[in-house]
C-alpha cells in the first residue's frame, strides 16, 4: 500500500480545500476505501477523513420531508422510527445490506459512492478492466463471465452493475442527492446519480466530480412512501449482495387498484433502473390481477439486452417487481427488523 498523509477535516470548507489537492481522497466509514487501498484499486497521496463534519443528522421536516446527512450511518438511518414507519422500503434496503458491523460503520454518502462488485474490477492482481484502466478491455465480456452483470444500459466496454441497495430504494422514493463543491451546491435526482457506460466512459462511476462531496439526501414526502417495499433476491439468506432487487412505492385508489407507482430495480444496470413505462401501464390495474401486473411490467423489459451468462435475470427481475408490488400493498408483511425475513422467493 502506497504511503499517504491523513487529515481529519474540521469543517466543510477545510474538507473542500483539502479535496482540491491532487491525489486527495475522502474517507468516511472506510468500508469500501480500505479494501480499495489493500487491493490497489485506489492509491491516494492524501486521505481526508470527513467523519468530523456535522453531517450525521436525520431530520423530518414540517411536511414530512426527510433529510439525511451524508455521514449518517446505515444502522442509524435504518433504526430511525420515522423511516421504519413512513418509508419501509428505505429501512428494508438498509437492513438487508451488508452486516450489522458494516452498517454501524458505513455512511449514506459512502454507500452511494461504493463501486461495482464485478470480480475483475475487484481483482487484487490487475486484470483487463475498463473501469480500472481505461482502454484495457473488459475481462468479463471477453470471457462471457457475465452471470452477475447488466441487462440494461451496458456497452461492449463495460457491463458492470451497481451494488447499492440504498440507491434503488432512493430511486423509488424520488429522492435527491445533495452535493457541495467549489462551485457551490447542486442537486441530482437519485436515479441520475450513477452513470452507465452508455452515459459516460466506464472509468466514471457517478456524476460526482473529484472535488465535490455529498452532503446528504433529501426524500420528499409522498403518500406512496408508506406503501413501499424492498425485495432483495440473493444467493444465500443473508449477508450477500443482490442478484436482482426491486423497490416499489405505491398509492392505491378504490381499495386494491393501483393509483401511482414507482418501481426501481437493482442488479440489472449500473444504476437503479426505473421501470417508467411499466409504471404508466400499471395505473388503474387491480393488484389481484397477476396477469395484468406481469403484462405491465413486461413492457419495460422489451428493450432488455441479456448477456450470454445472465438471461435468467430478465425473468427473475420481472417476478421480483411483481412480488414487490404485492408486498408493498401489504405493509403488515414480514418485519425485516425483527425476523430478518426477506419476504422474497424461497
Amino acid at each position: 500500500m502506497k504511503e499517504f498523509t491523513y487529515v481529519k477535516a474540521p469543517d466543510m470548507a477545510a474538507a473542500l480545500t483539502a479535496l482540491r489537492r491532487p491525489g486527495a481522497q475522502l474517507v468516511a466509514g472506510g468500508t469500501e476505501l480500505l479494501n480499495w487501498l489493500k487491493d490497489g484499486i485506489e492509491a491516494p497521496d492524501h486521505l481526508v477523513d470527513i467523519t468530523g463534519l456535522p453531517l450525521t443528522a436525520v431530520d423530518v421536516g414540517p411536511h414530512g420531508r426527510l433529510r439525511v446527512g451524508a455521514l449518517a450511518r446505515m444502522s442509524d438511518l435504518a433504526a430511525h422510527p420515522e423511516v421504519a414507519r413512513e418509508r419501509p422500503v428505505l429501512a428494508q434496503s438498509l437492513l438487508l445490506a451488508a452486516s450489522p458491523q458494516l452498517r454501524n460503520m458505513a455512511t449514506i454518502g459512502g454507500n452511494l459512492q461504493q463501486r461495482t462488485r464485478c470480480p475483475y474490477f475487484r481483482a487484487d492482481t490487475p486484470l483487463p478492466c475498463n473501469k480500472r484502466t481505461p482502454g484495457a478491455g473488459c475481462a468479463a465480456l471477453q470471457a462471457d463471465d457475465t452471470a452477475q452483470h447488466a441487462i440494461f444500459g451496458w456497452t461492449q466496454e463495460c457491463a458492470a452493475t451497481h451494488p447499492s441497495d440504498l440507491a434503488v430504494a432512493l430511486a423509488a422514493l424520488d429522492a435527491t442527492i445533495l452535493i457541495s463543491g467549489p462551485g457551490g451546491e447542486r442537486r441530482v435526482p437519485a436515479d441520475a446519480f450513477h452513470l452507465t457506460p452508455e452515459e459516460a466512459e466506464p472509468r466514471r462511476h457517478t456524476v460526482l466530480a473529484p472535488d465535490e462531496l455529498i452532503t446528504g439526501v433529501e426524500v420528499p414526502a409522498r403518500p406512496s412512501a408508506r406503501l413501499s417495499h424492498y425485495l432483495k433476491v440473493r444467493q444465500r439468506a443473508s449477508y450477500e449482495f443482490a442478484v436482482v432487487s426491486a423497490a416499489v412505492a405505491l398509492e392505491l385508489t378504490a381499495g386494491d387498484t393501483i393509483g401511482s407507482v414507482r418501481i426501481a430495480l437493482g442488479g440489472v444496470a449500473h444504476r437503479p433502473w426505473r421501470l417508467t413505462a411499466a409504471e404508466e401501464a400499471l395505473r388503474g390495474t387491480e393488484l389481484a390481477d397477476t396477469d395484468a401486473l406481469r403484462a405491465a411490467v413486461a413492457i419495460s423489459f422489451a428493450d432488455a439486452r441479456p448477456l450470454p451468462g445472465n438471461g435468467y435475470k430478465v425473468e427473475l427481475a420481472q417476478r421480483a417487481a411483481v412480488r414487490a408490488l404485492r408486498a408493498a400493498a401489504r405493509p403488515e408483511a414480514p418485519d425485516v427488523h425483527r425476523a430478518g425475513a426477506n419476504g422474497g422467493p424461497r
Binding site: G30, L34, L47, T51, S75, P100, N104
Partner: peptide, 13 residues
C-alpha cells in the same frame, strides 16, 4: 460501544 470491523478501521481514525 458499537460493534465494528477493526480490519476496515484505520488506527488513526
Amino acid at each position: 460501544g458499537r460493534r465494528v470491523l477493526s480490519c476496515l478501521t484505520l488506527a488513526v481514525a
